[in-house]
């Protein structure tokens, strides 16, 4: 039989994390991401790993902090309301400069919301979510294969830059099934001389801490962190471009919205409309340069998202408001149809 397997997005995340060397998963169930935990519960004991269902999201994220401080690849996963609970831990992780993978399989909100897909945690993911000046790396996969690939990449990026990385998916991406190839050759690991692994009386203590009693010191830490963020913005932004070369209209969409939008772009091209798609794969850093570049040719942008208009702000900022940007959206757990996106394309007056 083939080396391809048929996986749900949630399962692909879990298996790819294991492949990436993650042996420490701490979680708490919530629909639509529970399969990540269920899969880990089955697999981890067989490979000598730790699956732990914590008593709450808050303890789960703090267990991740502990494991990450010890230098191992650790992760947690949840869906929107659970991520809100984990946000304190994410801020601490950023402050302590700890790498870990945090998965958010988004559902409709605010509050308890619903269990259907949404992208309305965009602000929460890209602006931090927790308190203080910080960012997380935010990856937005567009296929089940990419769910697996971005899980591996997420661990690597987190370790390279010593910061938390969020995999931002949605209920549909978590639940739908597609064939996946898991390629173990792609896994890279980093040295962690900073980890608290015991000094064996051979070196100074490593300290993992986010508390600073001297304001000038704390300022220095923050400035240093933002130097690193600038380097990330320069080097790590990723996006897929589809039929953008001669496009008058650019649709910008990520995750499930990008899959719907791609069908709309193909349909519009058949009608002779010059439209293309930019699919941000990293939401932070946002692929500003790719959008700014497209704005030299394109006259209009459409942000397609499952929120009341969150990513649209980054689109406008990326192109410095040099072109009009319209919004095409469904919320509350509803996904726009390709026809609705096509209608938004038709509405553009060039």
């Amino acid at each position: 039989m083939k080396d391809k397997v048929l996986m749900k997005g949630n399962e692909a995340i879990a298996e790819a994390a294991i492949m990436a060397g993650c042996r420490h998963y701490f979680g708490y169930p919530i629909t639509p991401q529970t399969e990540v935990a269920a899969y880990m519960a089955k697999r981890m004991p067989k490979i000598g790993g730790t699956f732990l269902q914590a008593e709450s999201e808050i303890s789960a994220v703090n267990m991740v902090i502990g494991a990450a401080a010890a230098g191992v690849r650790a992760m947690t996963s949840s869906s929107s309301p659970g991520i809100s609970l984990k946000s304190e831990g994410l801020s601490y992780m950023a402050g302590c400069e700890l790498p870990a993978l945090i998965v958010n399989v988004q559902r409709g909100g605010p509050g308890l919301g619903g269990i259907q897909p949404s992208q309305s945690d965009y602000f929460q993911a890209t602006r931090g979510g927790g308190h203080g000046d910080y960012h997380m790396l935010v990856l937005a996969p567009g296929s089940i294969q990419e769910m697996a690939d971005m899980t591996v990449k997420g661990f690597e990026l987190a370790e390279t830059y010593r910061m938390p990385c969020m995999l931002l998916a949605d209920g549909t991406m978590g639940q739908m099934m597609e064939p996946v190839v898991l390629n173990v050759d792609n896994v890279k690991t980093a040295e962690k001389p900073w980890a608290v692994t015991g000094t064996k009386c051979e070196r100074e203590h490593n300290v993992i801490n986010s508390l600073s009693l001297v304001p000038e010191e704390l300022e220095k830490w923050n400035l240093k962190r933002y130097e690193r963020y600038a380097c990330i913005e320069e080097n790590e932004a990723m996006a897929e471009e589809f039929m953008t070369e001669d496009a008058d209209i650019i649709v910008v969409a990520f995750g499930i919205a990008a899959r719907v939008s791609k069908n709309a772009v193909v349909a519009a091209r058949k009608e002779g409309i010059k439209v293309g798609l930019i699919r941000p794969i990293t939401l932070w850093p946002f692929p500003k340069k790719i959008l700014a570049n497209a704005a030299q040719q394109a006259k209009h942008f459409i942000s397609v998202e499952l929120s009341m208009g969150q990513m649209i702000e980054d689109v406008e900022l990326a192109i410095r408001c040099s072109r009009p940007v319209s919004l095409c959206t469904r919320v509350g757990g509803v996904i726009p149809s390709p026809e609705e996106v096509l209608e938004a394309i038709h509405k553009v007056q060039l």
Binding site: M1, K4, V5, L6, E11, E15, K42, P179
Partner: peptide
């Protein structure tokens, strides 16, 4: 059964 599923390979 589906032999292409990850836990029933």
């Amino acid at each position: 059964i589906n032999g292409y599923r990850p836990l029933t390979g």
